[in-house]
Design a protein around this nucleic acid. Structure first.
Lengths: 247, 247
DNA sequence: ATTATTATTGAGCGTTACTCAACCTCAGGG
DNA sequence: CCCTGAGGTTGAGTAACGCTCAATAATAAT
């Protein structure tokens, strides 16, 4: 039976909660530095100053411990995102804020979270049957709803193109950020988050602008013809170039 | 000592290669259905019809076996990508092809590969110290170079905005596709790859268009772009003519 | 047929996540 | 104040894991 879930009659909860926090803290630290699979429950117990059995009293499995950590993280992430969106009004500023907040929170946690999420996805999920029923999917859903809200409001205001696909745009946004974080980490250039966020959000922003905000390209026939001719020439030249290379 | 790596004097390689293929096939099947960590080397051995020790004769560790599988996959992925890019000339068509090919190859392998890549990333990588030295990074680099080439050429031709950040755009492209695949799998809607690819690439395309492409028709910028394209073609043709004269 | 070399095997090793019978701890009733 | 017993803690134990290696089987070379 999970310790904190039982009615605990008149027991002082403070100590129990302290223990749970100690275990989570220890696990978070170790997962971050060594990774999930390289961290044993024995070491977590030692680091938290308890025995191994106690760890399993508070968390039924090592996976449940991981989920508890992700829970805390998503709570913080969702909270900061919601606050920021409420403060900022401009659609573009909101998107920039969400992106920056996302990366900042991930990097502040030493890239721990993205690794844990990946581990969890790879360990526990069979996309074909039960992804939608997983706890992590629910956390993710709550979080991305904030983003969805910003986009919907942007469309209502006329800032964004009503024709764009929200799921596709969401995938671009968060997928781009996740890969962007890896790029930043690879370059050891985590200081320059704002600049990279701008580089990621800018093209997306242009691409999802309402048509009114864009220049209308209804070109005259001559231009179209030239364009077409150029493409045909381009194709021919490429073929010739390749043939030349081979010989 | 790895069996196939030793000079094997005059041993027949056919049987050894068959064994290696059997082991890889068995592992691929099991990893795909149950995941990496839920598949034991004992079961792989049984599935391949060999003893556990033999598995470790061919692959020094379970991780090395995973890498071998990824190797094969990346080879196929890179190959098909390169072929397609050579056939298609138009920049936009190329990007659409790369995206479709990427998703198709992933989905054809029952989403196995993306899971394996994630597992590998989460198991083996410390982004701060040694990501760039990993084998998987090299595979990924070879693959994404094709994409980079398409973008660079697109810029040279005047199709794409020279001011855009290639790393950022690459992150958007592949990150968006990875998340997009999850979306497709979640919806059990893997048939409609082409449509979803279009939804992902379209906003990106608009966002990375050269300013000329977004400009008012008949403007000097558009003329300049066509001028530039013509000059490039002129130059290429002259080179080919000279080469033809020499031979 | 004999030998030399290489491929294969499975019992065994250290370690893992996890269990459980035994052991502490301490609030509440006598 | 000391009992009592529910609740919290413990670490030896368990099955299964990735991996090793001495022994064995198989086969090319002599």
């Amino acid at each position: 039976m999970p310790v904190l879930d039982t009615p605990t009659k008149n027991r002082p909860r403070a100590r129990l909660e302290q223990r749970e926090a100690d275990i989570i803290d220890a696990a978070t630290r170790l997962f971050a530095s060594d990774g999930f699979h390289a961290t044993s429950t024995r070491r977590i117990a030692a680091e938290a100053g308890v025995s191994e059995g106690t760890v399993f009293n508070y968390f039924s499995t090592k996976n449940a411990l991981l989920l508890a950590i992700l829970d805390e993280f998503y709570a913080r992430l969702t909270e900061t995102a919601r606050e920021g969106v409420e403060k900022v009004m401009d659609t573009r500023e909101r998107l920039l804020f969400l992106a920056t907040n996302h990366l900042r929170e991930l990097l502040d946690n030493q890239a721990l979270m993205i690794r844990l999420i990946q581990v969890y996805l790879s360990v526990d999920i069979n996309y074909y049957t039960d992804y939608k029923n997983t706890h992590i999917h629910r956390l993710n859903y709550q979080y991305t709803r904030i983003f969805d809200g910003v986009v919907r409001e942007g469309i209502e205001r006329g800032d964004l193109d009503p024709a764009l696909s929200l799921p596709a745009f969401r995938d671009l946004f968060f997928g781009g950020l996740e890969y962007g974080m890896r790029t930043l980490l690879g370059k050891n250039n985590t200081a320059n988050v704002a600049a990279y966020v701008q580089q990621i959000v800018d093209p997306l922003w242009t691409g999802m602008l309402a048509p009114a905000g864009r220049d209308v390209p209804g070109s005259p026939e001559t231009e179209q013809r030239l364009e077409k001719a150029c493409r045909r020439l381009e194709k021919a030249v490429r073929k010739l170039e390749q043939a030349a290379e081979r010989s």
